[in-house]
Design a protein around this nucleic acid. Structure first.
Lengths: 252, 252
DNA sequence: CTTGACCTTAACGTTGCGTCATGGTTTATG
DNA sequence: CATAAACCATGACGCAACGTTAAGGTCAAG
């Protein structure tokens, strides 16, 4: 039983272009090539294509599929397991994005109201105040007054959009930290991403960034009961977790 | 305040390549080009880049970002709303895939069942198996034992050729269903043809056919998440669509 | 004058095909 | 038997968002 490329295409529902492409990358080569140069497929190829389509529907990349169906020593199950975790982390990413976008929309709506009420500047002032209250003392002691003043100045100069970003960032950090903490591994991708987010956030307040200062700051999160309480509100023990993660992050 | 490309890169954390690319696509053009051909960026560009990065982190495509930050009549909020729904459907897709892969893995772990059924590719085998396990009960109650037993017996007795036909039928159904679904009309010719194909397919498993039983089966496609996941893999919502089409088909 | 840091453009590679463009082969039909 | 309609082939571009050489110009320091 031999069929042409278009017959196979119709039979399987994929395009002829796709079949030629699979031939090109060695995923599915025809049984033989007839004298006129036409591709000829046999029963075996039909079966193989079926398997290919099966994995493709699962979202496995073609290169993986090739390994799965041709390498004897390749474990289809573990391949699928890996694929599953890939999918899950993709989902986590998207869920994370969704949250952020939702929050951004909410914040933006709120911001419109705020600007309408001309309360925005007051709001920012409050943030500065909080910032000063939160970090001022420690940072002043450790890194000098200049740092703190620069931070406040920078904050006052934030545009509305930037301010929104800061807000959504801090929410994202909390969410991300919680998820990473739940997973339990400070070296995990999510935990390290949390650190990166935190760096981004901190850079809104610092004119100069250094890993030492950053790690130092997070250290105070653990040492100071007020900070610890704030992060424990996200998840109990998450301040310490963040510190562990940050140690790894700052080593890189 | 004018800075070079690498300064901006360091300041913002993106690569110089990215900045050149943004210039190339008109997303972020430098303030000016100095005599030696170097790109020179100003404060305004720094702010713009920050906005760009903000939206980029939300997963908005660059083309959209360009519209958002440059077109005055463009509503950033509604753009974000749309982006949100995009993200959500992406998430749904992935969640769907995750389910399917999990099911596949679960099925594969009971690998003996699969190999026993020889040529049966995992999915269909599992479907039939599930059919027996979960709905055998139901079908038995509704339509009597004979129906189920005959189905299984018939299935086990399929010849290779018949099996091939069943397989290609199911592919044809999927393809046909997808196309009909994309068109959107359950009463369309294509949709009704899909129903006919499905009937043909089901007749491989049932010794006696009745419209009521057929409609009942398709109903379970909608009600049971695993079945729905299978059909949603063809096209999201296609299980429900098939059910709508089948209602019309069975009335005729 | 050379080294090295920094800048430029150009162009390929990535993933999985869709979509021409161009041309050869086969078959059905008038 | 000529021709049109199908069907086949091989390029090659395009898509998103850059990473990564390659090849070479510019500029300040030693």
């Amino acid at each position: 039983m031999s069929i042409s490329i278009s017959k196979l295409a119709k039979l399987s529902g994929v395009s002829t272009r796709t079949l030629r492409y699979y031939d090109e990358i060695g995923l599915l080569t025809p049984e033989r090539i007839s004298r006129n140069g036409y591709r000829v497929y046999g029963q075996k190829q039909i079966d193989l294509l079926q398997q290919i389509m099966f994995y493709r529907e699962l979202g496995v990349v073609l290169e993986e599929i090739k390994k799965i169906i041709y390498a004897d020593d390749y474990e289809p199950l573990s391949a699928l397991q890996k694929h599953l975790t890939d999918l899950q982390s993709k989902k986590d990413q998207i869920v994370c994005l969704i949250k952020t976008v939702e929050q951004t929309i909410a914040a933006a709506k709120g911001e419109i109201i705020m600007t309408n009420k001309e309360k925005f500047s007051g709001f920012k002032a409050k943030l500065v105040e909080d910032n000063e209250k939160k970090f001022g003392q420690e940072i002043r002691e450790k890194y000098g007054d200049g740092q703190v003043d620069a931070s406040n100045a920078k904050l006052m100069g934030l545009s509305a959009v930037q301010y929104d970003h800061v807000e959504s960032l801090s929410r994202e950090i909390n969410g991300s930290l919680k998820r990473a903490f739940d997973q339990g591994d400070p070296s995990s991708e999510l935990a390290q991403k949390t650190c990166a987010l935190h760096k981004e956030w901190i850079c809104y307040f610092w004119s100069e960034y250094s890993k030492e200062a950053h790690l130092g700051l997070v250290q105070t999160y653990v040492d100071d009961p007020r900070f610890r309480a704030y992060y424990d509100a996200v998840a109990k023990g998450s301040a310490g977790f963040l510190y562990q993660a940050m140690k790894i992050y700052c080593q890189e």
